[in-house]
Design a protein around this nucleic acid. Structure first.
Lengths: 157, 157
DNA sequence: ACTAGTTAGTACGATACCGAACCAATTGCA
DNA sequence: TGCAATTGGTTCGGTATCGTACTAACTAGT
């Protein structure tokens, strides 16, 4: 006999969660592609994300701190930072507190570029913000953040 | 003089949308990494996604159709299908309707593997479904789907 | 002080992703 | 029918991503 009570003690349908992660994956892909149309040749989303991070939370961070903030392997961040340095958008200096380590400083060129990109994103976002006004975004954002935090915590077990 | 009415005619704060896409990006990354822990060596998310697609919507599709379903370049899909074929999980046959084209058939091994992976995902999802029951997921999913559809439509302009 | 273990970063190699260029088959149209 | 344009797929090359292995520097315990 199958349990007739709705839901109680049953595994939820995986298909729903499938759809969730599928949508998230495609959204990530589409939004990334979209953003990269306003980045100069040779720069990709991770480059911009790091510049933006440095402006928002302040520079002078170590590469490892930045890698953790984005939850990417340190080797990936190393590569990204090398690209930014080559483009003259950040400078890597020594970390006097720990000589194994380095500190990442954003260059004026990097700050300017980030500003320009943010500016160019405005029009890009235009249609989107009309279709999805802040109230609607605010509806889903907390749950997404909670999911992220959950997966993140789980990851470190 | 600035307009005193709240919101009307004002650009919404970009930071909110930033956060949205940032969360989506990281969620995508984390969920992908998580899923790949239950995939056999050498197979990655796109491989599984294609197998799953073939089971859900039926096989016999052409590579290009599949590429469009996932919104990836056809060269990427070509690569993914080559991997699946090499692993003996799909077969590529001729398309008698159009001899430039091919058809993708899922092999019994592919069907089995997909089944096993879905099974192994159950426990993996366990904690997540407790933390985020179907009702809560159902709360955000429609909006995410709407956003995806919007970005997708926009893309083709 | 010495030594074992840990931590920050890099080098290297394997693979993934994807744009450009290409070939082959099909379609549209004069 | 014949030819241009289009379409499906692959090849090739450049870059991204990331695991493994390494070096240098730090830390803790003796």
């Amino acid at each position: 006999m199958t349990d007739a009570r709705p839901d109680s003690g049953r595994e939820p349908d995986p298909a729903l969660y499938f759809r969730l992660f599928n949508e998230i994956g495609i959204l990530s892909q589409l939004s990334r592609a979209k953003l990269e149309t306003v980045l100069p040749e040779g720069l990709i989303l991770p480059h911009f994300a790091v510049l933006n991070h440095l402006v928002r939370v302040g520079d002078g961070r170590t590469p490892l701190e930045i890698a953790r903030a984005f939850q990417v392997p340190k080797t990936s961040m190393s590569h990204t930072l090398a690209g930014l340095e080559r483009a003259g958008l950040v400078r890597l200096g020594p970390n006097e507190k720990d000589r194994r380590s380095k500190r990442v400083w954003i260059a004026p060129e990097g700050r300017d570029l980030r500003e320009r990109v943010v500016g160019r994103m405005g029009p890009l976002l235009g249609g989107f913000t009309s279709a999805f006004p802040p109230e609607r975004v605010a509806e889903v954002l907390p749950l997404l953040e909670e999911m992220r935090a959950w997966l993140d915590a789980e990851r470190e077990v």
